Simulated scan of single mutants.
Amino acid sequence: MKNWLFMATAIISEVIATSALKSSEGFTRLVPSFIVVAGYAAAFYFLSLTLKSIPVGIAYAVWSGLGIVLVTAIAWVLHGQKLDMWGFVGVGFIISGVAVLNLLSKASVH
């Protein structure tokens, strides 16, 4: 269970860092730039801890898939990025893929 807590921390850190990229304005603003660097450092550290017990392919699929979905949601709410129907379909496929990997695949560690 601890490995999934590390995974959640890695995902949240990466989402915060990626979301701060827009606000950093090309690393010209100090506070958002610091958030980007610290967030990615934390994300990779906690992702590395998950790799002690979760296969790298599974860990990366979950990390990147959920990161994409969360960053898209944050961009929609905070930055006014709109999704069309196909955007929602694509996000739905990402969520479905992560769910299948974790709930049905024998490649995942439970």
Rank of each mutant, 00 (worst) to 15 (best):
M1Q: 14
K2G: 05
I12L: 15
S13N: 14
V15N: 12
V15A: 08
I16D: 04
I16C: 12
T18Y: 10
S19M: 12
L21W: 10
L21Q: 08
E25Q: 08
F27I: 09
T28S: 15
R29S: 03
L30E: 08
L30S: 04
V31I: 15
F34E: 04
I35A: 01
V36C: 01
A38H: 02
A41C: 14
A43I: 11
Y45V: 06
L47P: 00
S48T: 10
L51S: 11
L51W: 14
L51P: 15
K52Y: 13
A59K: 07
Y60D: 07
A61V: 01
A61W: 00
W63K: 12
G65L: 12
G65T: 13
G67Y: 14
I68K: 02
I68Y: 01
L70Y: 10
L70T: 11
T72L: 07
A73P: 07
A73C: 12
A75I: 00
W76K: 14
L78A: 15
L78T: 14
H79A: 07
L83S: 09
V89I: 15
G90W: 09
V91C: 08
F93H: 04
I95M: 04
S96G: 15
V100N: 00
L103Y: 13
L104P: 00
S105D: 08
S105Y: 06
K106L: 06
A107H: 06
S108K: 05
V109N: 12
